[in-house]
Design a protein around this nucleic acid. Structure first.
Length: 414
RNA sequence: GCGGGUGUAGCUCAGGUGGUUAGAGCGCCAGAUUGUGGAUCUGGAUGUCGUGGGUUCAAGUCCCAUCACUCGCCCCA
């Protein structure tokens, strides 16, 4: 252990930050449920094979970003870098192919061994949805519309752009890939170093290169549109028409490409310019071949994931911290009565903070600092008279309320 | 994994060309107010100057390494 620092790229979530995260997750869950997506969870680690077989050996996630280790039994284990593979594994493991289609929502930590920067951490959190067992474009439309709806519920939809593209079916993609390789190979000397590597591993990736020279080449490159099979073109048209019907605005970006092997047909990204180099806020696509790659029967699927940290940085309307009622006992005799009173108020459904020590002034100061709405003061006088002092900490008004009537009186501050 | 920037108190930051006891504001603690918070006033404590080496009579200041953060690339949420 190196001193008392957290591991690089990991962060503590103290209450203020945690409240933002929780707000994002809760809003998202509520909207997802309104679309019929049910929350579920898979383990945060899986056999390494689950990710290796689905993400593709050449993807950066597999080749350099996985937290992998051998456990005590010698099993090769990996902390999940994303959750789609785990959810699909769970569908097969639990025999859920009997109940397709399934609609899942999830929320949890993911792990990637990356160089941290703004909006990028080694342990981060994602919410996401997976719709498995629907092969038609209506599935894509619903999943994308849900993403837009959640962003809207978080107050950030108007600061994002939905970029949409198609990666076609197997046939289209193979044909286009071959044409692209020919084109870029002919201009090899003009390609950037990064793109030369892409040419070997994932030539489609060259399309969204940020390099100036690459972009000039890309501008003259053959487009995917002209290489789509009729079926793939129809599928894309149906997705666009569905989004129009659902009232979801989008911009077709022919250069949008996904890095992971399992995507086909729809690829989409909600992007923003508010997060520096990390523009993607919510992204996903269709992955019809994934379960088959994993060793299961061919099963279509479509879904997306969104980074909670990124969403939390953009979210508006984050609720303020709750304001408790502070019970302030004065003097040793009142401590017991204070505890008894506190517990009875809590059982009545109120949020109550019991002051822990010091004189009256100190305890009121503490009550003020934690944002208490009212302070209930009980000392010897109050015990004798059977009525507590109730002090409104916003206005400074103070009144006497009989102990028996306290819970009802305070109900207004629940 | 590659390149740039930064690291001084809990937080935000000052500390010309090395020089003796390292500062401010906010926050924190105490008192004015031993049964009344917030405002004000008075007083107090902050700290391995990220860490480890080196140069020097002398290092917060210069050099090297390392760690962390940060910006960009790769890639991605």
């Amino acid at each position: 252990m190196k001193s008392l620092q957290p591991v690089r790229g990991t962060h503590d979530l103290l209450p203020d930050a945690f409240r933002r995260h929780r707000h994002v997750a809760e809003r998202a869950r509520a909207v997802a449920e309104s679309y019929g997506f049910l929350e579920m969870a898979t383990p945060i680690f899986e056999f390494t094979e689950v990710f290796k077989r689905t993400l593709g050996d050449t993807s950066d996630v597999v080749s350099k970003e996985m937290y992998s280790f051998a456990d005590r039994g010698g099993e090769e284990i990996t902390l999940r870098p994303e959750n789609t593979a785990g959810v699909c594994r769970a569908i097969v493991s639990n025999g859920l192919r009997q109940s397709l289609p399934v609609k899942f929502f999830y929320d949890g930590p993911m792990f990637r061994y990356e160089r941290p920067q703004k909006g990028r951490q080694r342990q981060f959190h994602q919410i996401g949805v997976e719709l498995v067992g629907v092969e038609g474009p209506l599935g894509d439309v619903e999943v994308i519309a849900l993403g837009a709806h959640i962003l809207d519920a978080l107050g950030i939809l108007d600061r994002t752009t939905l970029e949409l593209n198609t990666l076609g079916d197997q046939e289209s993609r193979a044909a286009y890939r071959a044409v692209l390789v020919d084109y870029f190979s002919a201009h090899r000397d003009a390609l950037s170093e990064d793109s030369l590597a892409r040419l070997e591993r994932n030539p489609l990736r060259i399309l969204d290169s940020k390099d100036e020279g690459d972009r000039r080449l890309v501008a003259g490159a053959p487009t995917f549109e002209t290489h789509l099979t009729g079926a793939a073109a129809d599928f894309f048209a149906a997705v666009k028409a569905g989004l129009d019907t659902a009232g979801v605005a989008y911009a077709v970006n022919p250069r949008l490409v996904r890095g992971l092997d399992y995507y086909c047909h729809s690829a989409f990204e909600f992007t923003t310019t508010a997060l520096g180099a990390q523009g993607t806020v919510l992204a996903g696509g269709r992955y019809d071949g994934l379960i088959e790659m994993m060793g299961g029967p061919a099963t279509p699927g479509v879904g997306w994931a969104a980074g909670i940290e990124r969403l939390a940085m953009l979210a508006t309307d984050v609720p303020p911290a709750p304001r408790p009622i502070a019970v302030v006992p004065v003097g040793a005799a009142a401590e017991t009565a204070g505890l008894r009173l506190t517990q009875s108020l809590r059982r009545a459904g109120l949020a109550v903070d019991l002051g822990y020590g010091g004189n009256l002034g100190r305890r009121l100061k503490r009550a003020d600092k934690i944002g208490a709405r009212v302070a209930v003061i009980i000392g010897e006088d109050e015990l004798a008279s059977g009525a507590a002092k109730v002090r409104d900490l916003d206005t400074g008004n103070q009144s006497e309320v009989s102990l028996a009537a306290l819970a009802d009186h305070l109900a207004a501050f629940r």
